[in-house]
């Protein structure tokens, strides 16, 4: 696998959406290629950062109560 191919697959790799063979190929390339590995780190870091920052909010208690009544 070359860098171009790796970059094409990188988002699918980060999202674990590739098949096993492709996952292994990308993993192998990343272990051999520092620039692609750096890009991978950045993309994974971005994904984690977005998740961590956006998944903190919880529903207000009064909404939960109201819905419990509706659903109860």
């Amino acid at each position: 696998m070359n860098c171009g191919k790796c970059l094409e697959k990188l988002e699918g790799f980060v999202d674990r959406e590739l098949n096993e063979g492709e996952m292994a190929e990308v993993r192998q390339h990343l272990s051999d290629c520092a620039p692609c590995e750096g890009l991978f780190d950045l993309q994974v870091g971005m994904k984690r950062l977005v998740k961590r920052c956006c998944d903190q909010s919880t529903a207000p208690a009064h909404l939960r109560e109201r819905l419990s009544q509706i659903l109860g």
Binding site: P35, L42, G45
Partner: peptide, 24 residues
């Protein structure tokens, strides 16, 4: 993939550590 970034022209992942949650 029409506009692939250049390999090597990217900042390193550790810059992300300094970004505030509200900015994200």
């Amino acid at each position: 993939y029409d506009t692939l970034p250049d390999v090597g022209a990217q900042p390193e992942a550790d810059v992300l550590d300094g970004i505030a949650a509200q900015e994200v």
